[in-house]
Design a protein around this nucleic acid. Sequence first.
DNA 1: TATTTTCCGAGTATTTTTGTCAAGAACAAG
DNA 2: CTTGTTCTTGACAAAAATACTCGGAAAATA
Lengths: 148, 148
Amino acid sequence: MKLTTKGRYAVLALTDLAMEGDKGYVKISHIAVRQNISSTYLEQILLKLKREGLVIGVRGPNGGYKLAASPEKIMIADIVNIVEGKMEAKGCVSKSGSCTGVSGRCMTHDLWDELSRHIELFLGQISLMDIIKGNVLGRSSPPRAFDY
Amino acid sequence: MKLTTKGRYAVLALTDLAMEGDKGYVKISHIAVRQNISSTYLEQILLKLKREGLVIGVRGPNGGYKLAASPEKIMIADIVNIVEGKMEAKGCVSKSGSCTGVSGRCMTHDLWDELSRHIELFLGQISLMDIIKGNVLGRSSPPRAFDY
DNA sequence: TATTTTCCGAGTATTTTTGTCAAGAACAAG
DNA sequence: CTTGTTCTTGACAAAAATACTCGGAAAATA
């Protein structure tokens, strides 16, 4: 799982959108000013999110964007995965061939795989609503229903 | 916390070193061939790790590198933090000023902060020995001694 | 029709990552 | 002390990824 400013902008923008609630559609330019993001860049990002059905966009006067679902149902992992492109399946591809170490696949393959899964799990657990309410801290681990 | 091939190379190289065990010093060129990494690039990486005391380098014939501690004591988080540079404290700095949203600091600040901490915790829990033995899968969460 | 705003594709600039090169210093062995 | 091997250092270059811009088309409202 990658994480660049693009992903952060996306989450930031949707959080902004979530805070506006049901007051109608919000213009890109307004979000851009409030969150201090280049508005033309933000266009790209919101477009992707629209194509994947996370937000709804309407053109023309009084147009803009709004969330396609309630803030509790939109998870951070969804947002990030969309704008950052699908996570690269394997973090271990060297220049000649892929994942070739002393044995078939490199020794650290499982490690990066597991890390990806771990991050995904974490971000898949937090919703836009959680961010608005500040319910982020303290969520150190997923609830382990079957492990104990 | 950043994560590029540099970090992966570092972990890969040290894992290789760990597998050689106490058979003396291992040459960069050997690691490079086995793990399929550019040897001159690997030099840079091992140098950093040496400066921070994770490995010991010895020059001259029969020289090379070896781990400075036993594989159980070297954690992946240490390795990554060294070669990737200290983790960027805050993931939310926009072009003009830092972390300026509608309120003082941006609304997603805590989120990225917590994510960083989370990754750090995960990688801080896995040692080189774990990788060698394949003890990576299933470690989905830190043991929560005091939470239950 | 005129205005507003999203939609869309392409293109550019900047930064980061990745890797190279060359000269030099330290060390060990003969 | 000479030779070979290796690390050490820093500057530099190629390549890739990221961040961002631009010009125009399409839709909606009035």
